[in-house]
Design a protein around this nucleic acid. Structure first.
Length: 260
DNA sequence: AAACGTTCCAACCGCCTGGTC
DNA sequence: GGACCAGGCGGTTGGAACGTT
């Protein structure tokens, strides 16, 4: 029973990587680029699982990685992104150049969680600890609707599958955290219904309404459904109409953050 | 100095998703 | 539509490093 292993494990090394293994992997990827991870170990002469090679490269050997301590700005950015995205470490990492999902996940679990707890904030909900406790009992007795937010998925069902989507409970949107984090704007206004309510001059770009992808500044995204992606990106981005967790207000500008 | 406890993080594991046939 | 495969993701773990008694 169970899954078949991702690769032949009988003759593969496990545990910490040696300098020689690192060198082999780096040399191979420099010469051939990132290709088929499954076949890479054999081609590179490594007794490692392909997944292990990928992880090692992505998390530690990539030349564009930023090593060293996280800055205070990165801390705050991670906290805000986590409040927005939850444990979507890869999405969070995509907005912190040079940082990896694994690194951010570890940093969250070892530092930021404690930091938030010291501030009296529940790291899971980003709400004051006492309110989080109350919330637990409240939500069991009230019916709450959910608002699904996605990075430009076309249907509600699809968006949750792609993990670009995530569900935010209405109760989270009332913004009880603002007393503790006044710069954290929890007025989540991004959703198809809301777009319809917006002022035409806020969202129009050449007479078109921005899709959610474009509203996040991802005008080049393949997920763009409004067609602005194919238009002049300057004109598209100049028609800013979003106000997502204060992302527009200078606290956090998604448009300036690179996608992974 | 030794024993023990705690913290940290690199690496692994299993599941999920998207692509292909 | 279903099976298969590769890649990607988040949760978890093992053990080294560090701190405390």
């Amino acid at each position: 029973m169970g899954r078949s292993p991702c690769c032949e494990k009988a003759h593969t090394n496990k545990g910490a990587w040696t300098k020689e293994e690192d060198d082999r992997l780096i040399a191979y990827i420099r010469a051939h680029g990132e290709g088929c991870w499954r076949s890479l170990p054999k081609a590179a002469g490594l007794l490692r699982c392909g997944k292990s090679c990928r992880l090692r490269w992505i998390n530690y050997l990539r030349p564009d990685l930023k090593r060293g301590n996280f800055t205070e700005e990165e801390d705050e950015l991670i906290i805000k992104l986590h409040s927005l995205l939850g444990n979507k470490w890869s999405l969070i990492a995509g907005r912190l150049p040079g940082r990896t999902d694994n690194e951010i996940k570890n940093y969250w679990n070892t530092h930021i969680r404690r930091k938030l707890l010291n501030r009296g904030i529940d790291p899971a909900t980003h709400r004051p600890l006492n309110e989080s406790a109350q919330e637990t009992t409240t939500t069991t007795t009230t019916t709450t609707t959910t608002t699904t937010i996605s990075f430009a998925a076309s249907t509600a069902k699809e968006e949750e599958k792609t993990t670009g989507g995530f569900v935010i409970n209405d109760m989270m949107m009332i913004n009880p955290v603002q007393g503790k984090c006044p710069d954290l704007n929890l007025e989540l206004r991004i959703s198809p219904p809301y777009q319809q309510q917006r002022q035409p001059d806020q969202l129009k770009s050449g007479g078109r309404v921005q899709c959610f992808s474009c509203s996040l500044g991802l005008q080049n995204s393949k997920d763009c459904s409004c067609g602005i992606a194919s238009m002049d990106s300057n004109s598209a981005s100049s028609s800013v109409g979003y106000d997502f967790l204060g992302l527009k207000s200078g606290v956090l500008d998604y448009r300036s953050l690179e996608m992974k």
